[in-house]
Write a protein that binds this DNA or RNA. Structure first.
Length: 294
DNA sequence: CGCCATTCGGGTTCTCGTAT
DNA sequence: ATACGAGAACCCGAATGGCG
């Protein structure tokens, strides 16, 4: 750093051919400039400037050194400009991890729009249902369902998770449509195990169901796609996040039941490492993604 | 004689080693 | 980890001296 300061002092003297004018431009004194150049010459072991009390001129070595200094200082300026630009414009690699369902249903359909808006951001999207360590895995950001968990991370709640109970039309024709949560006891129920290993209990809102509802665990999977596949195959009633079930509900492969009894349970969370929100690419991603879950 | 680079002396800041 | 002191480095303003 000191070398760069000395270089720019020397360059200013070389360009003005005057210690006093150079000092004025550098907002210092002529003596400081003089000493600075003298120290530089001593360090290099060569005289860079010929000076009389009336005139300053470059020696042959000085002219050579001047050319190099101008080039180096230009490079440094360019580097600084590039860095300060990267601090204000979203660019660079952004590593995102999320669950398969959120990735495929929410993020992937919006990627084209994201790329058009932020073409300089290289997005790496990893779909992983197991809980990943953001710090160990060098991820910038995660979108997860459930609870934030890791206290080392910053978290923003994006939306509550709405669940639907659903089954195939065929199953409901054969086994009947449950009218109250307690009637689920007479049905085959399909559960999804959370990445933590826990099977989340099904929560209901109805006042007369104050006592915990007994829900059989007829089938348990660790993947929502599997839960929905067996539900569509007529094997029971499944409880899945609305975002995962929407396409199957829209096509009629699954039919919702007990809709008025369902409550919001858990949330979608955005997680990132503290301090990283200063990165423009991460801020851009957070601002882009947040409205998608409203 | 005026201008300007250099030198000098003194004050301030920084760095590094040592003690607690 | 922090505080302290000694020495080095740096800067400034004033004085000096040489050139045109």
């Amino acid at each position: 750093m000191e070398t760069l300061t000395t270089m720019s002092t020397f360059v200013r003297v070389a360009e003005t051919r005057n210690f006093t004018r150079a000092a004025r431009q550098l907002r210092t004194t002529a003596s400081a400039v003089s000493k600075s150049v003298a120290r530089l010459e001593q360090r290099l072991g060569v005289r860079l400037l010929d000076r009389t009390t009336r005139r300053v001129s470059l020696t042959q070595e000085g002219a050579l050194y001047y050319e190099r200094c101008v080039r180096i200082l230009g490079e440094v300026n360019d580097a600084e400009a590039e860095i300060s630009q990267s601090l204000t414009r979203p660019r660079g690699r952004l590593r995102v991890t999320t669950t398969t369902i959120l990735g495929l249903r929410v993020l992937v359909p919006q990627l084209r729009r994201f790329r058009e808006r932020f073409p300089e951001v290289q997005l790496e999207l990893e779909l992983e249902d197991a809980v990943v360590d953001l710090i160990a895995g060098s991820y910038d950001v995660a979108i997860r369902m459930g609870e934030p968990g890791d206290p080392r991370l910053k978290a923003r709640r994006l939306a509550p998770i709405r669940h639907v109970l659903c089954a195939s039309p065929d199953y409901l024709r054969k086994r009947g449509v449950p009218r109250t949560p307690s009637q689920l006891a007479e049905h085959d129920c399909i559960h999804c195990r959370l990445p933590s290993g826990r099977i989340e209990p099904w929560a209901f809102a109805t006042a007369q169901e104050a006592a915990p509802v007994r829900v059989p665990q007829s089938l348990v999977f660790n993947h929502l796609e599997a839960v929905m596949m067996v539900a569509m195959d007529g094997m029971g009633i499944a409880r899945v996040p609305e975002v995962a079930a929407t396409p199957a509900l829209a096509s009629g492969k699954l039919v919702p039941v007990l809709r008025e009894h369902m409550v919001e349970q858990g949330s979608v969370w955005l997680l990132w490492q503290p301090g990283r929100e200063r990165l423009p690419r991460l801020r851009a991603f957070i601002d882009f993604v947040s409205p998608l879950f409203r």
